[in-house]
Simulated scan of single mutants.
Amino acid sequence: MDLTRSFLEKIEEMTGPKVIEVGGLAYSEESLYAVQQPTPTMIKAQSLTALIDYLNANTDKLFPEKLLIHVVNETTVQIISSLNPDFKNRENYIQADALLPVITLNRFMDRENFNIMLQSRFVPNEDRGRVLSSIAKMRFENSVKLEDDGVTQTATSAVGVTLVKEEQIPNPVVLAPFRTFTEINQPESPFILRVNDNCEVGLFEADGGAWRHEAMTRIKTYLETQLGEDYTIIA
């Protein structure tokens, strides 16, 4: 009986992972993988209101002190758990990704589409009105003037963009495109307004992306106001 037990133990020892010590460090001949706990399927949302409703309903019986609200960037917010004890991982309960319109920046576009974009995808303010007024007075000039005195002919061509009324194009302009969640006030930022020889118009960002940090701060403040002090919110 003892012989059989010793034989089985020897087989188990031979078939199990072998640990070798080299230079004071233990090495295994086989790779070991930790067994992870099951995690819930993440809910996908498109507004901050959805996150707030989820927390207020508390259908999943979550404890605020064990949650972390992470403002990942100006368009994404997650509600995640504290670290799991077994694998030091986190559960992602719900993620909101802002549903935003397409805004063309940092390249030229035709004046008609630029006008539509400015009116439909930017918050009304004083500079938006100035830009709309300026581009409305632009015209593309492509003409040839011919002078003939019977001996010689002189042709003068004019190609380019002119203003119907003498007026300077404003620069820089401070505008607020819809670039983050609609529940918060859209952050304003400076843009350079340029017009090329084809009468195409472009807005070029001029703040180095500082508006993104402002948007994240506003998201954090909005969530703190709506949820109170029970939750930890980082941005």
Score class of each variant (00 low, 15 high):
87 F>K: 11
193 L>V: 05
208 G>A: 11
85 P>L: 05
211 W>S: 01
199 C>E: 03
123 V>R: 06
143 S>D: 13
129 G>K: 13
42 M>S: 11
166 E>Q: 14
83 L>W: 08
107 R>I: 02
231 Y>W: 10
97 D>Q: 10
62 L>P: 01
65 E>L: 13
124 P>H: 06
199 C>T: 01
148 D>R: 12
16 G>K: 09
133 S>Y: 14
152 T>Y: 12
74 E>Q: 12
15 T>P: 00
49 T>N: 10
214 E>N: 04
65 E>G: 11
107 R>D: 07
186 Q>Y: 01
95 Q>S: 11
148 D>S: 12
86 D>P: 00
86 D>Y: 08
232 T>S: 13
33 Y>L: 13
185 N>A: 11
75 T>R: 11
86 D>A: 09
179 R>W: 04
119 Q>E: 07
75 T>D: 03
168 Q>Y: 11
96 A>M: 02
86 D>I: 06
168 Q>V: 09
206 A>Y: 10
216 M>S: 07
105 L>E: 05
128 R>M: 10
31 S>I: 00
143 S>H: 11
189 S>N: 04
163 L>C: 14
80 I>R: 12
77 V>D: 03
44 K>Y: 00
30 E>Y: 07
27 Y>A: 03
182 T>N: 05
143 S>P: 10
46 Q>C: 04
26 A>F: 02
8 L>C: 07
219 I>G: 04
175 L>A: 01
103 I>T: 07
195 V>A: 08
35 V>M: 13
12 E>H: 08
4 T>P: 02
116 I>Y: 05
100 L>T: 10
138 M>W: 06
33 Y>I: 07
39 T>V: 14
129 G>L: 12
51 L>T: 01
136 A>P: 07
101 P>E: 00
48 L>M: 09
36 Q>A: 13
211 W>D: 01
167 E>S: 15
177 P>Q: 02
116 I>L: 06
11 I>Y: 01
92 N>D: 05
34 A>E: 04
25 L>I: 08
168 Q>K: 15
180 T>E: 00
111 R>M: 06
171 N>T: 08
89 N>D: 15
154 T>K: 15
36 Q>P: 03
67 L>N: 09
134 S>Y: 13
137 K>D: 15
21 E>C: 04
215 A>Y: 02
55 L>E: 01
19 V>I: 10
221 T>W: 04
230 D>R: 14
2 D>K: 07
53 D>V: 00
166 E>F: 04
90 R>N: 09
74 E>R: 11
85 P>S: 04
30 E>W: 04
144 V>K: 15
233 I>F: 10
180 T>F: 03
195 V>G: 06
158 A>M: 14
154 T>G: 12
232 T>V: 14
141 E>G: 15
233 I>E: 04
126 E>A: 14
64 P>S: 04
225 T>Y: 08
226 Q>I: 02
83 L>Y: 04
51 L>V: 07
4 T>D: 05
113 N>W: 10
94 I>H: 02
